[in-house]
Simulated scan of single mutants.
Amino acid sequence: MNILTTHILDTANGCPAKGVEICLYKMSGAAHDASAELVKTVITNDDGRTDTPLLNEDEFALGYWKIVFKVADYFAADNSSDTPFLSDVPICFGIQNLDHYHVPLLVSPWSYSTYRGS
């Protein structure tokens, strides 16, 4: 199935990150300064996932993409900080073949990591 999915895990609190806004952009190229077109904005559910794929089979396209996870409000709501160290976490990546791409975010108020999941 050719889809793009994601989820967010709060590694500091050991739970899914619910209520986080995620913006998906289609990039014009791989360069850091490539122009970006907003494709959609979604909010994570109680499981830290989106209710539908970021890209379903009809929307799926090869090329460069960027997911921006807006984590500042999430950590501010948790009273971790009035001025969180991380505000937006951008993940830029390429889709080079037809497949299921899963791009999770593991995040704390001070760090993050990602990987290509399955």
Rank of each mutant, 00 (worst) to 15 (best):
V68D: 04
R116K: 07
V39R: 06
I22V: 13
Y101R: 10
T5S: 13
D58T: 15
I91N: 02
L106D: 03
I67C: 07
A30M: 05
G94I: 03
K66E: 15
N2Q: 13
M27D: 04
A61C: 09
L38C: 05
A30W: 02
K70I: 07
G48Q: 01
I43C: 08
S118A: 14
F75H: 07
S118L: 11
I8Q: 01
H100K: 14
D88W: 03
S111D: 10
R116Q: 06
D82R: 12
T41H: 03
V39S: 01
D78K: 15
R49W: 11
Y25G: 04
V71P: 00
Q96S: 09
S28Q: 09
P84M: 11
W65R: 05
L86I: 08
T5Q: 08
E59K: 10
N97F: 00
P16S: 15
Y112C: 10
T83V: 13
Y25S: 07
V68Q: 05
L4V: 14
Y112E: 04
I95S: 01
K26M: 01
H100I: 12
A72M: 06
I91Q: 04
P109R: 12
Y25A: 06
N45Y: 12
D99L: 01
D88N: 07
L55I: 15
P90K: 05
T41W: 02
A36H: 03
R49V: 14
L38K: 04
I43P: 04
P53W: 07
C92M: 03
H32S: 02
I67F: 10
C92K: 08
L86P: 00
F85Y: 15
C92V: 05
A61Q: 12
L38E: 07
Y101K: 12
L9M: 07
D78L: 15
D51R: 07
S81H: 10
L38V: 05
K70M: 08
